[in-house]
Design a protein around this nucleic acid. Sequence first.
RNA 1: GCCGAGGUGGCGGAAUCGGCAGACGCGACGGACUUAAAAUCCGUUGCCCGCAAGGGCGUAGGGGUUCGACCCCCCUCCUCGGCACCA
Length: 817
Amino acid sequence: MVPDYKPQDIEQKWQAKWAEDELYRVGESDEKPKWYFLTMFPYTSGDLHIGHWYAEAPADTAARFKRMQGYNVLRPIGFDAFGLPAENAAIKRNIHPFTWTIQNVENMRRQLRSLGATYDWSREVVTCLPEYYKWTEWFFLQFYKAGLAYRAKAPANWCPKCQTVLANEQVTAQGLCERCESLVTKRDLEQWFLRITNYADELLDHSKIQWPERIGLMQKNWIGRSEGAEISFGIDGYPDEDIRVFTTRPDTVYGVTFMVFAPEHPLIERLTTPDHRPAVEAYVAETRRQSEIERQSTEKEKTGVFTGAYAINRLNGEKVPIFIADYVLLSYGTGAVMAVPAHDTRDFAFAKKYGLPIPVVIAPEGWSGGPLDEAYTEAGTMVNSGLFDGTPSVEGKKKVAEYLKDKGWGGPTVNYRLRDWLISRQRYWGAPIPIVYCDHCGIVPVPEDQLPVLLPEDAEFRPTGESPLKYHEAFVNTTCPTCGGPAKRESDTMDTFICSSWYFLRYASPDYDKGPFDPAKVKYWLPVDQYTGGAEHACMHLLYARFFTMALRDLGLMDFGEPFTRLFNQGLIIADSRKMSKSRGNVINPDLYVQEMGADTVRAYLMFIGPWDQGGDWNDNGISGMHRFLNRVWNLVLSDEDLRGKYLGEASEAEVRALRRLTHRTVKKVAEDLERFRFNTMLAALMEFTNYLAKARETAAANSPYWKEAIDSLILMLAPAAPHVAEELWTSTGHEYSVHNQRFPVWDEALVKEEEITLVVQVNGKVRDRIVVPASIGEEEVKAQARQLERVQPFIHGREVRNIFYVKGRLVNIVVS
RNA sequence: GCCGAGGUGGCGGAAUCGGCAGACGCGACGGACUUAAAAUCCGUUGCCCGCAAGGGCGUAGGGGUUCGACCCCCCUCCUCGGCACCA
């Protein structure tokens, strides 16, 4: 009798056994090639939802496949454990962030274990533990010493709900906080920044990594490189002042009829003439009142006010009025623009509204010489442009920029949308910024031997949301490491994205205490060969981690600049057509499904839903189908012994061939699909194979010596996706433990080939018949056979056969008039 | 507005190179087993006409290239993602 398939029993049994044997523990090896397969570590928000499983289960399957191919696979796991939710929980439930986080970690560990994955738990890292964040702080000091970390006052994104500033990357296009979706406002604050902009060009270069093109484009959009020129303008009445603007169109500089400054521009205060001051101040106040979205709405009509001041265009000596307008942003370029109404749509609209001249300096082809109805922004010929008259504008861009450089009035330059990374957070639950402020010595970095700067355990969490560190006297008040005098500690902590910018290095040597990592082990394991995770991190984690790695390389800590050689983004699992979130109450917990159907079913079902990069709407309609499939495999394999000898007679040669062909075909298909992360079609192929075997079992084919090859292959092919069932079936069919130390079956190309093929016969592109022919059949023979077919005859009878196309092994198409 | 991904049965999806559209699964329908149900097994299942043989239509819509188009080209519509007054 075949025992029932009871996943609950076998899964726990094998998980315990694998853990006891440390089956997935890896070390450096000379014999096997290494393969570092990493999935973005989870944030310790509480429960894992089905989305986490969607990230982990297929990745685990792919990693298991690599193992079975003979790679030394590093598959570590850890927890991104600093961050705001822990602190909010502290305020709300009166529980310490550490306690809350560790409780979550424990629960998530349990859930991750139930997945039956190949994690090497001995390498686990938790970013909120001092032995980890000591090195986060250490990295900050290295950045500081190298001039890559600096403190500056700047208008920062302020989330009123999170009560902290945010980096640009952490604000959505709609001006909302990426985490809590509150409306973000601006605040002028002294903040710490990392010079990610130093690496803008290298970050733009994806030529050394195999990443999805989509992510490259997103990063490219975000970095926003634009080539142009910086041009200096004089200011009437201020001979020592100079205002620089960035433009992508230096060729239009002779068409400047006014200048526009951002309302917050620091020069405005000085330049505004007394008679214009009231209007300017009112406009500035109005701009400040507006939200970022209101201000940046492209629908809005252009507004602005004249300051009474004039700029001087050095190229033609013209005096042009200076306006302020809210469409000019202080944060981009120099915060001031030269306005060329004839050749820029925004400037055109502005000039029309305020009655400013619109002289044409780039002539469109066939231009009449008259005024324009709208801005002409294409290429043309330079006119009214002094010595550049007659120059094609494309060429003119370069020539004008060079000319400016010769004259000392600016020159060619590149501008980026990307801003430096603002890393200060006015919160408790993060790695402290290891800096001390001394009245005497100024900004003093904490000496490395005094790291880590520990988070005080007894901080008071206030419902006001103010940083608990700021009011923690014992923490803030310290002595200056340089002069020994009284000093204040920095009370801001670091953006948690810093913690996740180097965790993949820590996995190489998680217990190392002489530095953030053991250089020899990093040299062996890194870079990550395959990284997987959500595309929502394109312009945050993935950009930051690349920057970090490049900076560490330049600091001489490593010899590579790209952390992740290959990247794959799984899609998003949504529920009821909406993103899963606690606030929406549509979070799907995998635990219930695991209890009912087993982890193998949940794993395989997630992979079967569709292509991994597509994600999809979670519904459990189909999950029973996957459970049925595993049950069928179970019964097929375990009833094998019972049936042996039941069907007498020897398998025919044709039966054996068919059996072997499908076995080898399936091995090929499954291996190729696993290689390319096509788990859905891999499982479909296994289902077809199983269906075939279930039928073949009723025939003499089951008596073939190759029957065992088929069954063994099936178990081995199932092992990456459904590791528990595979282990149980493998060991119960007389094989040696463990199936997960076996080699993946290899296919014989000669057996895969068909000796007989079915050709489709078309007349004028329509299928009319099929013929079975030997695979070796010649073209002429096929064509001759095809036109003789009974079902084809009526369609060609009495017509002229114009052509016959033969696609080898596939079809014949007879073209008639 | 710009850039990108996508649109295939009742549903999830398949079709690796321009060559059988709808693999595999869910659901539905019919049957077997059962006192009955569940489970399991067998069969049918894109739409339309037809008793059938068979025929026609069909991959968001329209046009094109080709012997042949889900696939390539042009236009339109819809969904999702990124950027967006970026000078």
